[in-house]
Nucleic acid binder design. Sequence first.
DNA 1: CTAGGGTTAG
Length: 328
Amino acid sequence: TEFTYNSLFYGICRRKDPNGASDLLREMCTNGHRPWIKNCTEMVQQLCFSGRITEALGFLEEMLKMGFLPDIVTYSAAMNGLCKTGEVDNALGLFRDISAKSYLPDVVAHNILINGFRLSGKLNEAQEIMEEMLEKGLFPSVVTYNLMIDVWCKSGNIEKAVDCLNKMVDEEKSPTVVTYTSLIDGLCGAGRPDEAIVLWHKMSDKSCAPNKIAYTAFVNGLCKCGRVETALTYYEEMMTKGFVLDTFSCLYFINALISNGNTTKGCELLKEVLQRDMTQGDDLKMVGLINKAVEVLSKDGRTSPEISILVEKGLISRAQTMGKKDGN
DNA sequence: CTAGGGTTAG
């Protein structure tokens, strides 16, 4: 029956086997059975995630040849795959292509393109897609607004981003933690930490709980604005809530503390970070941040004994404490 | 077995 075939089809799609899937589709076609499109979508998505976009697109072509039409959801998954590998122009091509074939891309399909352009830094194009969406009479979703807030912040248009938040409230589209995080990050990036702080508390007032990403963005952003001691209070709040700063952000924060003269706290946090499982510790950027912190801390009388202990324990290489230069 | 696709930091 159609169900039997679709069960097999499900299994083949889960194996990410586009050739096997095509073969089975051919058989279903001759027997007059309809494939369950959801399985195609999931395979396309999985193939894209593993970098096999060409195979995913080839499979969609095969489907078409057999007269099975992928729908907008399946095409959206393919467009997203293209965007995530930087092929946003090809994603746009596919979008135009299916639109010409009388598909009607919905809000999500537009969001995928907006995000694609956003990720590749083509901020004007991102805005154009949003305008196109409005012209088509589609209503932006919370995700659309969240994406556009980031686009406007990154193109130096903070006011538009702030307006966007107000518009969301007017339209009764509740801002989410993502909305607030993007805007807080944008405000800090624009050197407006006080407004970021106000917004942070507004977020809590709206009973929107910050998550790990929100805290990370806020702590990083405050440091970027030189508000390191303020960042420290939110860092501590973050810890009491059980959120952990990832290693990279923590090293960035440690260096900010040190530059700001708080070597004691910087050293304390460095010690904690070094005791973490540093399996990806060969990341050059992270090594650079560790070296930079160690260089200052080993010259500071209050922290140098602690650094010596860390060296003895083998958590820091001796080269890092000797003014490095030849380190790596 | 009629849904499945989209967003935040560094």
